[in-house]
Structure formats: structure tokens, C-alpha cells
């Protein structure tokens, strides 16, 4: 069982987003470790891009700061490796826009990411129509990872993290669905999806919202008609109460802007991260009460 499947053993799961490099690289690594140790079940690790067109002001600002502080794709992957060395063992899914991945070299990117210990990818500007190139990079990288890992196996009896993912057929490119996705298209996307479904709960960009979108339970039910993999909901979930409400319907709750806002605005970001994760985790524990 790979890390992502493993994470969904106790649903609903808590999935915060945090960008590497914000407010600086070392702090962001500490924050992600703190989130992982305090209740996060899966973390969306943000890669920064100069033109994040699906993001609202909070994540725009955070990723801009990260870029000004010198974050790069390479440094981000090194940070993932460091998190693994520190013993973080929950799934880390890389979330970022396509161009920096292309600039890094797509095959090299997915290979290096897998070797660093990432568990999957979310690329918001890569709809189904354009995913083929990424998919073929993934299948290329999987075979490379396998052989690299087989070599490692000679040295150690413990299967490395990459192996566990690779054995299950490679890291997933997480598919996104939106409230605007028509039924036929939803079926087509959901049928081939791997890992989990990222269901965008609102028509809009990332950012905190006062209320949970109407019709969410119907939307989730529609997605479930086409797939057995977990359905996770993101965009606009800001409070533990909202998380609890969504957690009653979905398999996972994604919290981005609220997480970045709370931690980024804190004097003690590590403490805030621990508290933030604990609060959301405990709210989600009561989702099915």
C-alpha cells in the first residue's frame, strides 16, 4: 500500500497546503514538519510560480515572497528530501504550475520528485486535454525509479519510499474536478483518476470563504458515481467548523489559504502550525458524529 492509500485509512483526512520557501525556506520546512506531526494526514507542498492564475491573494502573496527569497524547484525538491530525512512519513503531494516543471525538464522533475520522496502531483493548469505529456514523463520516470530503487534494495532490506510508490504503478497526477465540469466530462476524468480526486468546491480561485458552497453534497455524490478513489474537497474552506461540515461528505478536506494566512501572519509559525493542524484534525474527528 502506498502512502496516499495508507493515509485514507481513517477518513476524512486533513490536507493542508503550504508553499515551500514561505516565509523562508527553513521555516517552511519546519512548518510542514509541524503540520505533519500535529494532525495533517497529507500535505500539499506548494511550488511557487510568478503567475499563479488559479490562486487568490493569500497564496499569491506567499508564493511571491517565496520567490523573492530565492525558492526554486531544485531547492523545493531538496526540502522534500529533508522532510523525509526528518522522518515525515505522510504523503507529500507537490502542487505547482506547469511552466517551472517544464523549465526543470519534465522527466527529470518527476524522477527527482519521486526520489526526493514526493507522492504525487497537482498541476492546476494542466487539464485532462494537456495531461498526456506529463503522464508519459511519469511512466518514464517510474521505470527509472524502479531500477534506482532496486539498486538500493541490495544495500538495505527496507524498501525505500520511492519503491512503495513505484510498485503501485507510479506517482499519480491528481485530477481536478470543478462545479462547472459537465457530467460526461466528469465521468471521463474520474474514471481514469488515480490517488484521489481534487474536487474544487466553488467556481473561483483559492481563498477563504464565509460559507460552504451550496450543492456540494450533490456534487460529491455525482463524482462518486464514477470512481471508488477518495474524493477530497478544496477551495474556500477556512475554519475547523467548515472542515467538519465538508468532512461529513468528503474523504478529505483541503485547506490552503487559511493555513497560509494563519501561519504566515504568526510570530511563532511553528507553534501556529501545530495548533492549526490539531484544531482541524480534531474537528474532522467529529465529522461523522
Amino acid at each position: 500500500m502506498n502512502r496516499i492509500e495508507n493515509a485514507f485509512k481513517n477518513k476524512p483526512i486533513f490536507m493542508p497546503y503550504f508553499p515551500l520557501g514561505y516565509p523562508d525556506l527553513d521555516t517552511s520546512i519546519d512548518v510542514i514538519e509541524a503540520l505533519a506531526n500535529s494532525g495533517a494526514d497529507l500535505i500539499e507542498v506548494g511550488l511557487s510560480f510568478s503567475d499563479p492564475l488559479a490562486d487568490g491573494s493569500v497564496i499569491q502573496h506567499a508564493t511571491q515572497v517565496a520567490l523573492e527569497k530565492g525558492i526554486t524547484v531544485k531547492k523545493s525538491l531538496e526540502a522534500v528530501r529533508k522532510l523525509r530525512q526528518r522522518g515525515v512519513d505522510i504523503p507529500l503531494v507537490l502542487m505547482g504550475y506547469y511552466n517551472p516543471m517544464l523549465a526543470y525538464g519534465l522527466e527529470k522533475f518527476v524522477r527527482d520528485a519521486a526520489e526526493a520522496g514526493a507522492d504525487g502531483f497537482i498541476v492546476p493548469d494542466l487539464p485532462m486535454e494537456e495531461a498526456e505529456e506529463f503522464m508519459s514523463a511519469l511512466s518514464g520516470a517510474t521505470s527509472v525509479t524502479r531500477s534506482a530503487v532496486e539498486a538500493q534494495m541490495d544495500d538495505s532490506n527496507r524498501p525505500s519510499t520511492s519503491l512503495r510508490s513505484a510498485q503501485d504503478g507510479g506517482l499519480p497526477l491528481i485530477q481536478m474536478l470543478a462545479p462547472t465540469t459537465p457530467p460526461e466530462r466528469m465521468e471521463r476524468i474520474a474514471r481514469n483518476a488515480k490517488g484521489f480526486i481534487y474536487l474544487v468546491s466553488v467556481t473561483g480561485i483559492t481563498g477563504e470563504r464565509k460559507a460552504i458552497a451550496e450543492g456540494l453534497s450533490d456534487l460529491i455524490a455525482n463524482v462518486r458515481k464514477h470512481t471508488d478513489i477518495p474524493v477530497c474537497v478544496g477551495f474556500g474552506i477556512s475554519t475547523p467548523e467548515q472542515a467538519k461540515e465538508v468532512g461529513a461528505m468528503a474523504d478529505g478536506v483541503i485547506v490552503g489559504s487559511a493555513c497560509v494566512n494563519a501561519i504566515g501572519g504568526s510570530e511563532k509559525p511553528i507553534e501556529t502550525a501545530k495548533q492549526f493542524a490539531a484544531e482541524f484534525r480534531s474537528a474532522l474527528n467529529t465529522s461523522h458524529d
Binding site: D125, P127, L177, T181, V200
Partner: peptide, 23 residues
């Protein structure tokens, strides 16, 4: 999904947008 018109000019063009916009 297929488009009614060619979505690309050789290797260029395409539809690299969030899912929300595809419809």
C-alpha cells in the same frame, strides 16, 4: 476530449487552464 477546431499550431497552443474554465 476532442476539439472542433485544431487546438494547436504545430507544438504550440493548447489549453493549459484550470478545470473550472474548460467547459
Amino acid at each position: 476530449m476532442t476539439t472542433l477546431l485544431p487546438p494547436k499550431f504545430g507544438p504550440y497552443g493548447g489549453q493549459f487552464v484550470p478545470e473550472t474554465l474548460m467547459p
